[in-house]
Design a protein around this nucleic acid. Sequence first.
DNA 1: CCGTTAACCTGAGAGC
DNA 2: TGCTCTCAGGTTAACG
Length: 290
Amino acid sequence: MPELPEVEIVKQSLQNKVLHRKINKIKIANKNLRFKVKKNIENILKKRITKILRISKYLIIEFKNLEYLIFHFGMSGTLHFIKNKNLKDTNLSFYHSKSLPKKHNHIEFMFDNFKLVYNDPRRFGFIEYISSKNDLKNYFFKIGPEPLNKKFNFLYLKNILKNKNRNIKNFLLDQKYVSGLGNIYVNEILFLARISPNKLCKKIDNTEITKIIKFSKIVLGKAIKKGGSSIRDFKNSEGIKGSFQAEFSVYNRKNKKCLRKGCNGVIHRILISNRSTFVCQNCQIIKKNY
DNA sequence: CCGTTAACCTGAGAGC
DNA sequence: TGCTCTCAGGTTAACG
């Protein structure tokens, strides 16, 4: 589910609610997420929340004395803010759980007047405790810059692309070079930049590098403004859906008309590394010898 | 080094 | 109704 914009939306929708609050109790209904949830997450109990951060697709809660909980939402993880009055959660339907909305509520963080519930049907997400600022730094040492960061600039991309014999789509999805992009936004960026997802990195020219940078920032910025993309059921912590899916240029638009003015092309769905890839073969010329 | 495949999971939606 | 099949906002190990 969540790429950078969706995690940013969760962060924003959570910030005012949990800042300066304390968690009194953690209920673990199912610790079998992607990694087993360890008991040490309880180290943050009764410690004041000092910050909510986001690094690429990770949500990070900072506690007093610089201890942290980090969340990764995998494909289907969501974090819900629920007031005590609504503890029955009758009005909330979670991702992929219309009939049994509470079935996949795995972890509950109990505050004084509310709780945060981590729901994740597929359990690809995870939660970890980090004990110091230095450990946090080390944890993210290996991931690349976000497209919104100034480190993601022409020289950085130019240098890193020039010798790479792999296609640009897989490169942009590789979190160690660029972090925060997922399948939706990479499809959108390459369409707007009019670059074939199959094109080899080393053949990406200067103009195209500039376009990738430009459209990465534009697409992510717009998606955040629109509350993220809810192609199934992504919701922020208040249960509100995003609306950027209404503005997709290519993603999920198989067999539909290309939206670029003057183009009569049709959007095709192809597979790259077994993941859905949407292209207009007019706008994004695909050559076999790329 | 590179792409693909499978694996980790559950559920929605399509087609029969 | 129900069965089977495909697909899904992610990541990563193993293989060729």
